[in-house]
Design a protein around this nucleic acid. Sequence first.
DNA 1: AATTCGGGGGC
DNA 2: GCCCCAGAATT
Length: 352
Amino acid sequence: MTAISTPLPELRAALLAWFDSAGRDLPWRLGTEGQRDPYRVWVAEILLQQTQVARGLHYYDRFLEAFPTVQALAEAPIHEVLKAWEGCGYYARARNLHRAAKLIAADGFPGNYDGWLALPGVGPYTAAAVASLAHGEARAVNDGNVRRVLARLYGQAQPTDAWIGARADALLDAARPGAWNEAVMDLGATVCTPRAPRCPECPLAAWCAALASGTPTAFPAPKVRTAVRAVEAVALLIGDGHAAVLERREGKLLGGLMGLPMLELGPDETLQGTLEKLCCRLGARSGELLGQVSHSMTHRQITLHVYAGTSDLPRQIVATAALSKLDHKALGLLRTRQQGLFAEPLMQSSSV
DNA sequence: AATTCGGGGGC
DNA sequence: GCCCCAGAATT
């Protein structure tokens, strides 16, 4: 399919006029257009990766209060950075943000797209966003909003990343690159939404091939997603809601966070066998089953069997540790028991 | 080019 | 229950 004849100057003017009157007022949009504070823009862009704005707002204020400057962030211990990020997900973002802050504290802020791209945690999207918003560089962003807006504008159901990138580059208003990027993303977030787009309010409606087709939500086609794996694991709760034995998680999954000692069931392994392996590793003894919690994490559905345990291992204060939602659910199991909410406290899961 | 990495919003 | 979210790193 082809786009409806699009005179670029008119289309750009229409979207920018809409943005100037209807654009969102967001806390990282302080300062002069094209000359925003790089620290504030950078933190926001990392925080908003795969995270909706409404959710990011809460974390943004907390994070900037805890780390007002890049120097403060660079000097903070990693566990404090992760604590500020707790519950936000994709924790590699926080680890990379901290690593990059140390580089910036030593060498200063990058001044252009290539410089930003070289930092850990900064990819093509974030580099283009910061370069355009903080340095006024003419770089088009390519995120989920841009993808949807352009797929619809041009009636392309299966746009590749390169195809979107080329269209975004061609459309970019080089006179106001920062405003243009924000305008496309605002349009995607508030008007050209995935499920129920508000086409009558859209400043680009006259040029939109998807609207003309009669089924705008058919563009772009849904992405194929990898299957969700069902996973079973056991955990030991040694202590109470105030202080408990916690381990630092290594590896990619929840890496850097603290959590209850936990072990996933291998293929053909039993609950009891896995529990014994876990106790053996810790030098701990297992007690009664406190219950199960279920937790879904996009690509896996976890059922965690939580046992009380005893050992001489040192306990840590729960409230000051950065924990995943899964661990908070496991600890919540203990609270519901103490409050006597369940006569037979075996299940806490919402769905099972 | 595919997978992996959290957690929740909105329908 | 499904699709998505101001993506990046790894394989």
